[in-house]
Design a protein around this nucleic acid. Structure first.
Lengths: 194, 194
DNA sequence: CGCTTTAGGAACGCAAGCGTTCACTATTTG
DNA sequence: CAAATAGTGAACGCTTGCGTTCCTAAAGCG
């Protein structure tokens, strides 16, 4: 059997991936509040039983789905030039918020007002590592003497990310590359000049 | 009658204020998702009928309540000194997010993921006016020659606010005054130096 | 091929919240 | 004081989503 065109019955990991996909599609179309177990099951073309066999409830499913989709942090860029390094970091951030994962993250932030599980995930897996990368690049540049040493602080490392995130939250995706470049050249770089 | 101690039956504006109060209390305790018409009515010690006589539904009630509580923008500070002016603007922002209104705003952001009414309110009534104030102060300072003229841009005006908002969203209230001063002195002021 | 596991899909009872309505009563107004 | 207005509080039917259960059939395994 199993005609290539006719979808066969999935199980195990294949089904799990289909469910995660469905969660993302639901988050994008109806948001977190509108996401229901029935909706996810229907969207993934499966039954609720398959969901409840794997997760205790909606929150756990969503956290797992997002956690599953978050990109692992690649190595630090090193072009030997601060501006290029920081631009790449900012662009990675923009690419992430512009992707379906970013949309899901916005929904997650929505839920973070009362639910600490979501807030912790947001902080530990999304913001903190990126802030750390930024700071690392800044410190390397300070060691090289490319930036003024006092500029390599936590706060300065946060600036670029904060503005991309803010833009994303207020105007919604996509955050255009123009904006990213402007943030870098009008805000971040001037902060670093010796 | 109307013994001062015994609460009498309210009507009109008095009742409306009590309802708005109840909305805020509910947003703080159970969040937007947990807020129900029954809950608000109970908390305000009134009936659902009084609510539905005034608002078509939950969303409208919440939008009205928050819109009602937002501080009208006071005049621009003018101490003749950029740093003092900007510090006051940033402190006003911090004071707002630290107040119950700020808590309500976070809940509102929660709902803004799909609902454009909330997003518009957030943008037009909260962020845009404050950004405008910032830019105005920057331009006045640029006219006086206190800052480099190229620094009086939209993006630079956004920086301080973006960082306070980010801090508020990620770590939750309160945003301490230390942080506000650090943002000003480590990020905003260095951007402005001639 | 037969056995075990598990997906697919539907039905169920349950609880919560919505929005409405009604009778009752307090307050205001004239 | 009487009439009009409007708050209180309860009941109502309705819808939606939750979490469970059941049965059938497909997939994987020996």
């Amino acid at each position: 059997m199993a005609t290539p065109g006719a979808p066969t019955r999935r199980r195990g990991d294949a089904l799990e991936r289909a469910i995660y996909d469905a969660v993302f599609r639901q988050l994008q179309t109806v948001g977190y509040t509108g996401l229901t177990m029935e909706g996810v099951a229907g969207c993934a073309q499966t039954g609720k039983a398959a969901l409840y066999r794997r997760w205790p409830g909606k929150d756990d499913l969503v956290v797992d789905a997002i956690d599953h989709a978050l990109p692992s942090l690649a190595d630090l860029p090193d072009h030997g030039e601060v501006r290029e390094d920081l631009l790449e970091l900012l662009r990675r951030m923009a690419a992430m918020v512009n992707s379906p994962t970013g949309c899901a993250l916005q929904c997650l932030l929505a839920q973070a007002d009362r639910d600490h599980q979501f807030k912790a995930l947001l902080h530990e897996r999304v913001l903190a590592p990126r802030k750390a990368s930024f700071l690392a690049v800044l410190q390397r540049a300070a060691d090289r003497g490319q930036v003024r040493p006092e500029a390599a602080t936590q706060l300065v490392a946060e600036v670029g990310l904060a503005m991309v995130v803010q833009r994303f939250l207020v105007d919604g995706p996509p955050v255009p590359d123009d904006f990213v470049v402007s943030v870098l050249d009008e805000v971040v770089m001037p902060l670093l000049r010796r």
